[in-house]
């Protein structure tokens, strides 16, 4: 898209794109531990995130828009996390849910736990809690949607090209 690189998109068009993108997010299931049960509860009938637009749950990273890392990341699992993140196509976002993936959590002194998933992949939204309430996760998703709506397409694409793969 050479046009976007050089001239940038005018505001109305980019806001339409961003609005469409933020309301049809597909998320990649990456439930590791207890927080995964909370993600299942968020997708249940009581707290429903399908009304925010996250309808199908693709099991494959190639079709996903963002990834919720829910649960403890251990050193044995860390290469898989990085590999799955790399398989997702751009533009992609990461929500780190729960204190285990924010910074190691209650296992901060363990010999086999990665102290936070942001040591491996860049994170956009941190949701604290152990486990966070479903309403807290919904707020995290809404914050992510706000962030997407405020994005500038030109910077996002240029950033991709200069980033090493």
């Amino acid at each position: 898209m050479g046009v976007v690189d050089k001239f940038g998109l005018p505001k109305p068009i980019s806001s339409v794109f961003n609005w469409a993108r933020s309301y049809s997010l597909w998320y990649f299931q990456f439930g590791l531990a207890c927080c995964a049960i909370e993600v299942m509860a968020v997708s249940g009938p009581r707290h429903d995130f399908m009304r925010l637009g996250i309808i199908p749950l693709p099991a494959s990273p190639r079709q996903a828009d963002f990834m919720i890392v829910a649960g403890t990341v251990t050193d044995k699992m860390a290469p898989s996390v990085k590999r799955l993140y790399d398989q997702m196509p751009e533009p992609k976002y990461v929500i780190s849910m729960g204190s285990c993936s924010n910074s190691g959590g209650p296992y901060w002194d363990s010999y086999s736990v990665t102290k936070g998933v942001d040591q491996l992949i860049p994170v956009d939204v941190y949701v604290p809690g152990c486990p966070p309430r479903p309403e807290a996760l919904q707020e995290g998703i809404i914050l992510l949607q706000k962030k997407i709506r405020g994005e500038d397409m030109k910077e996002k694409w240029l950033e991709v090209q200069t980033e090493p793969i």
């Binding site: 050193d75 044995k76 901060w108 002194d109 363990s110 010999y111 086999s112 102290k115």
Partner: peptide, 17 residues
């Protein structure tokens, strides 16, 4: 994981953090 050295539960194994 593969390549991990040491036996963690020994009393002489330190917790680095």
């Amino acid at each position: 994981p593969d390549g991990y050295e040491g036996n963690p539960m020994l009393k002489s194994f330190e917790l680095i953090s």
